[in-house]
Design a protein around this nucleic acid. Structure first.
Lengths: 359, 359
DNA sequence: TTGAAAGCGGTACCAG
DNA sequence: CTGGTACCGCTTTCAA
């Protein structure tokens, strides 16, 4: 009994955890045998196996995960950070897109035997350097994201939900922005819109950049005036301000396409505050994965980015890379879904003042 | 250069990671010295320290986290599971309460130097046995939750957002249900309600149990009839069904108190489908942390459980226990907040048909 | 000021 | 069928 902890002090001395050797000694066996017995490996007699297990159970033995990890060489842990919200850390869970992306990522990871570790949006290196991460998911990375650089430099494969240049270990999933944005704009145009206002955000996020670019190209082709309202950051207040700016301007748009995922009700409110009716005075389409958008009055036409799909596909790519050890970058596009609802349909019929240009 | 990996094969052979010893050899120093140099420990000449660091940088050395963990004896990792949604895993992120609880927990953990690991709601032991968890957060645990038992048996401290019996290592934060529920009921009564319907859920979650108990006691004291609608689980559909049942009954309530956190709009819809006006025909109060509740028409009176507060306090308790090694259970109550809004105020004045009983 | 060596707690060879 | 032993990669005495 040389190692028995003597409980003498007031404060319950940190009870030394039961280790494998303790079980072995108690059972009169060797570490090896007990390990094999508990893991179901090796060829052991049933009697010994049972005895080892029983002893372990009796002592309340729990294998030390860190030790196993070191031995195994991997932790089956995947880091997860939402980069877009660098300034307002953590608030992202309240965004349906990120809420769904997060839970779907966790779910997909678990399905492959990995667990997700939540990292702060502003994550500096020392926040995760001590974590045994096998890979990382970067949601909505910045342009030339330093955190992504860090991971890659550490040879930790990364998947992001925005297209990135193909560097070793950098995988991505994305929506086809061009097609998606144009799809919405075409739809609004078909509904009679000729002056479509775009509400985006000033942000280093790739999403708004791509959206803006596609929008401007589309407008140029049509000869439509580009009407852009840029929020300094993707928040409800800033979005509202951007909408206000656009709607108060002398050349008021006849349709609005909101790139910022904001509360459907809040957007409707903002518009109505200008005395405009939707869809009679103004057509509306929003990028949103909020189920609420289908329940407002009128229900809002949305472009769904399908975060669950993105997460599932992304995790697939990541796990493949991880388990094959192949660092050649992979990527995949997932389809968006345009949910046409009341806010982009005028009175059930076409009210277009001219035929939509084709081509 | 005896160990230099020769790149010859087509497939980039899994490049052996650079280890401390590799850096040491390259720098012509010992492991010890390099380790000290990188960690800023020990007494080394500036020249050596710099040289070691430079070499490490040049080789792209990253310390192996698993090895450090084993050495350190802890991983600074905290497991997190939402237990209530056992049947519908992961959907919880779309609930404002859990979204806020989750992000606030992650944030609080990080602030203490820990990271949160997302566990599935149905988490069996083998899902986390391999994870080097120092502690765990159990959101909305079941009664006699087996997962909690597992953690405690493994001597892993647990904090939950529901009061639990004081077993070693089991910490908790909770709201004072009794006071909170009674506060809402009193408020509704003061607004003239005499037949308050309660919508709860059939669930092993402690929350609904406590709510129901408090409600029944309150009704008994007042001599008011208990009108309870129980959803089989806390979903929008089930909630709506429960509301329907209550409102369609011959003794229709004149006020509704919804314990299930559901979409504010959906609840309002459900009520209006019965041709009832809020608050004229029916007073309404909901348990909710959805900011949207303040923006509906009319805005909804809510009981906020203050998940961020709960998470912060809970994490504090947990970290304290962790770092002091003290397993004596601790617990704390946090205050709820009753946000009185339009749905529980009739026309700005009291319309009570009788004086509210006091006592 | 620097380095050798002993662990941290398991797992997996290979010899008996 | 079972047990000694060498590792996994890092930190930390302690001796030189």
């Amino acid at each position: 009994m040389t190692t028995s902890p003597r409980g003498g002090g007031k404060r319950p001395a940190p009870v030394p955890r039961v280790r494998l050797v303790d079980v072995a000694r108690e059972a009169g066996l060797s570490k090896t045998t007990v390990s094999a017995a508990l893991n179901g490996t090796g060829r052991l007699s049933d009697a010994v196996r049972l005895h080892a297990r029983e002893t372990a159970r009796r002592l309340g033995y729990r294998p030390n995960a860190s030790a196993r990890l070191l031995r195994a060489g991997h932790a089956r842990l995947i880091g997860y950070a939402v980069r877009e919200y660098v300034d307002t850390p953590w608030s992202y869970m309240e965004s349906p897109y990120f809420a769904q992306l997060t839970s779907a990522s966790a779910q997909a990871a678990l399905a492959h035997g990995y667990a997700l570790v939540l990292l702060p949006t502003h994550s500096a290196r020392d926040e995760w350097a001590d974590l045994p991460l096998d890979a990382a998911v970067m949601a909505d990375p910045l342009v030339g994201d330093p955190l992504v650089e860090d991971f890659l430099a550490a040879r930790i494969p990364v998947v992001s939900d925005r297209r990135v240049e193909g560097r070793p270990g950098a995988h991505w999933v994305d929506v086809d922005h061009e097609t998606a944005i144009r799809g919405v704009l075409d739809h609004l145009e078909a509904g009679g819109a000729r002056r479509i206002g775009l509400v985006g955000a000033h942000s280093t996020s790739l999403f708004y950049e791509a959206g803006l670019t596609a929008y401007q190209a589309w407008c140029r082709e049509r000869g439509f005036p580009p009407l852009v309202g840029l929020a300094p950051h993707p928040s409800t207040q800033a979005t509202r301000a951007a909408i206000d700016l656009l709607l108060a301007s002398p050349d008021r748009p006849d349709a609005l396409f909101i790139l910022i995922e904001d509360s459907p009700l809040s957007i409707l409110d903002a518009i109505r505050a200008h005395g405009l009716r939707v869809p009679e005075d103004l057509l509306l389409a929003c990028v949103s994965d909020d189920p609420m958008a289908g329940r407002t009055d009128p229900p809002i036409t949305t472009l769904s980015l399908r975060p669950s799909e993105i997460a599932t596909v992304g995790m697939e790519l990541l796990i493949n890379a991880l388990e094959s050890g192949d660092r050649t970058p992979t990527g995949r596009l997932v389809e968006t879904r345009l949910e046409v609802r009341g806010t982009s349909r005028r009175g059930g019929g076409a009210e277009a003042s001219g035929p939509p240009r084709t081509g």
